[in-house]
Design a protein around this nucleic acid. Sequence first.
DNA 1: TGCGATATGTTGCTGAAGTCAACAATTCGC
DNA 2: GCGAATTGTTGACTTCAGCAACATATCGCA
Lengths: 395, 395
Amino acid sequence: MTNADLPRRSRGNSNDSVRQHNLSVVLRSVHHSGGLSRSAITAGTGLNRSTIAAIAAELVERGLVVEVGPGASTGVGRPSPVLRPSDGPVGIAVNPEIDAITVAAVGLGGRVVTRRRYDTGGPLSATDAAALTVTAIAEVRAAIDAQHRVVGVGVAMPGLVRAGDGLVRLAPHLRWTDEPFVDAVAAGTGLPVVAGNDASLGALAEFSFGAGRGETDMVYLNGGASGIGGGVITGGVPFGGVDGYGGEFGHTFVNSAGVQCHCGATGCLETEVRRSTLLRLVGLSDAAATQLEAAMLSATSDDLTTEIHRQLGFLAIALRNAINVLNPGLIVLGGFLGSLYATDPDYLDGLVSRQALRAPRETVRITRAALGPDILMIGAAELALEPVLSDPLRY
Amino acid sequence: MTNADLPRRSRGNSNDSVRQHNLSVVLRSVHHSGGLSRSAITAGTGLNRSTIAAIAAELVERGLVVEVGPGASTGVGRPSPVLRPSDGPVGIAVNPEIDAITVAAVGLGGRVVTRRRYDTGGPLSATDAAALTVTAIAEVRAAIDAQHRVVGVGVAMPGLVRAGDGLVRLAPHLRWTDEPFVDAVAAGTGLPVVAGNDASLGALAEFSFGAGRGETDMVYLNGGASGIGGGVITGGVPFGGVDGYGGEFGHTFVNSAGVQCHCGATGCLETEVRRSTLLRLVGLSDAAATQLEAAMLSATSDDLTTEIHRQLGFLAIALRNAINVLNPGLIVLGGFLGSLYATDPDYLDGLVSRQALRAPRETVRITRAALGPDILMIGAAELALEPVLSDPLRY
DNA sequence: TGCGATATGTTGCTGAAGTCAACAATTCGC
DNA sequence: GCGAATTGTTGACTTCAGCAACATATCGCA
């Protein structure tokens, strides 16, 4: 049994792990900030100037960061060079959806290098989806510059993924159950492949590069065509639970008179708060979902306003539970939940204020997601790049 | 700014912090296990034999552990000496309740050295309670052996405590709002004082010494006279959220037709699942709550059985939410919730199985609390002893 | 009863990594 | 143009974990 196999809390620190940890801390700061002066890193880590110099030199030598001349002067004193993420390492992001598979190459700093969408015209079997993914990854690899090093693949899965082995336990929209999609892609590409729940990866992306920057405790709820998913960041770390299934706010109980959900329970949030209902009321097809927000903001029909408030009411109940149990500093709403919130933010804020316990609600902010359509690509790539970030010497 | 003030995730590791971390890991294992051979520690931490020998010697020298001759032989090979928590350091545990304040001295390993209850005959103001607590702590200190070193005070508060400064934001049962109880006790005793929510500390105690030993992700729900509280352990670490208010399952939404709760919301778990209702149905007074379980187990009245199942139904909804969002490996039920569960475990298990998402429910176990009436003393003492456990060299 | 196998404590050496102090370099303000 | 302030650079120093060789203790078997 090697040291790395032991549970984190009980693991001893060897001298090697000190350097690994410090390299990781520095690379992560540079990655998340997009650029940081050596003096800022010194202040941020509490390490000695000379230590940071050595670490920076090592990261530069490994091709993980580049050191560029000092930018805008910050005052007296010798200017400090700025560390930026290098263009070298990239993660491949994969997002299988009902009618398409999207694959992208994403570098450090969350920069999307290439992105391609492969229409499938409907749900594919896991085997077929894996085959298409393998082909797509090969094409993306061929399309990017030779300077890029692909370090791994991250999959944003619309469903529950077992953290231990990546088995897709359930992806209802794709009609997959217990599918070894990850193993199939790994076998086909020869790359390390890791998968996670799409909304949890959205949370990770918003935390790293979006609305949740600088937060330590954050809840993310996303509304999509297939339902409502979520993710949690606690203490600056993505939260998963024992098997990585955590964050499923879509099946929070919100209505005693609710109908039965596909999950088997009744009164779930995602049976009450639905994009399709809103689309129907504004007279749009599912394909035109991007116009939903505009239609809702200019709502004139009473039916629509009533429905918006009805849905916000149920959303408030789910948020109240989340605030009471998780005491987050920030709640980020993505997808059509962001649109719903934008339609009448005061209404939701008011409901939450009246329902959540006073102490935790005093510090929580509610906001909508900051990242656009690349959010899942960035989140999935975080997963792929995580080994580099946590052990830079291996890359 | 010193290194220790920086957020954990971004902190660099110096050589000093390596030793501190390793001492902490070893002391914590010994504390939680009650006794561990040096060879077991070597295997558990992944550190070298010689390193463990040096760390053990240092902990012995500091009076934090004692090394006793090998116990029962485990097989061939030279026997390994066993490390046990020393009797020296103790934490003072305080639990203010509506009609009494309980104070105890608790040593490493969760051993309760002395415990005293001070009846108050009713709720005290925070100032009076602090004064009584200071006196009580002095008496407890006088009563314990001179060999004991009091390292600090931990308070299990029936309410919400702000983690940053220990301010008691709300303790409804005591009728306290924004009370600097912690500061008052610290000023009166000269000891470091830390407070936490009582149920969260119950969770910590069950995790360290009770039903949750060895788990990494655990949810604890406790039913008391004043309502329902809870606590969460994630990744082997107590979960608090940004301000430490996390784990308030008592105000989870479970009933659209529910009445208004004292918190202002409606349909809260603790308005539906109440000990007082059960006591009334079995014909017991509030004082005789310890006999509640026996009465429930031998229930003959239809009214009582109906009410038990009604309450279990609402509890199942709260557990379903917790399972879906937190994906714990274990749910521990304490107080009258443990009794409620014991009355018909299959019924609750069945409801949860039908309502929670299949993947996370497959791995979760539900059980009742293992620790008895000392649970809050042990939990509060964990808080007091935490500085010793995380930085043994300072003590 | 003695001997080999096995496991673990003990000891002294080695190497890695962070700290520190002194010095050099660079910018700003007067 | 000069001093103050900030930060990079360099080499000596310290701490700590790993390692290997040896010592010690137990068990099983002949």
